[in-house]
Amino acid sequence: MFEDLEPRAKRGAAVASLSREDLDLYAVEELNERIEALEAEIARVRAAIDSKNSRKSAADALFNFGR
Rank of each mutant, 00 (worst) to 15 (best):
A13K: 15
S17I: 02
E39R: 11
R55E: 15
R34T: 14
N32Y: 11
S17F: 02
A48V: 06
R44P: 01
Y26L: 13
E36C: 12
S19H: 05
L38M: 11
R11W: 00
N32M: 09
G12W: 06
L38G: 07
R46N: 14
E33M: 14
I49P: 05
A16R: 12
L38Q: 09
V28D: 14
A47I: 01
D24C: 07
R55D: 11
K10H: 12
D24M: 05
S17W: 08
A14K: 12
D22I: 04
I49R: 01
E30S: 03
R55S: 14
R55W: 13
N32R: 15
D22K: 13
E6Y: 09
E36H: 12
I42Y: 05
K52H: 13
R46L: 08
R46M: 02
V45D: 00
D50H: 14
S54N: 10
A27Q: 10
L18S: 07
A9L: 15
A43P: 01
D50K: 11
E41M: 00
E30N: 03
S51E: 09
K52C: 13
R34F: 10
V15D: 01
E21C: 08
G12A: 05
N32T: 10
G12N: 04
R55V: 02
L31M: 08
L18R: 15
R20S: 15
V15F: 07
R8Y: 09
S51H: 07
A43G: 02
A37K: 03
R34E: 12
N53K: 05
E36W: 02
L23G: 04
L25H: 03
R8N: 12
A47E: 15
E41N: 13
D24L: 00
D24Q: 01
A37L: 07
E30D: 02
R44I: 04
K10L: 15
D50F: 06
R55H: 13
E29I: 00
E29N: 09
E41D: 09
N32F: 15
I35E: 04
S54E: 13
L38K: 08
Y26C: 13
S19V: 01
D24H: 03
V28M: 13
Y26K: 10
V15G: 00
I42D: 07
A27F: 04
A16T: 01
E41A: 14
A14E: 15
A43R: 05
V28S: 12
R34G: 07
R11M: 03
E33C: 06
N32I: 14
S51I: 01
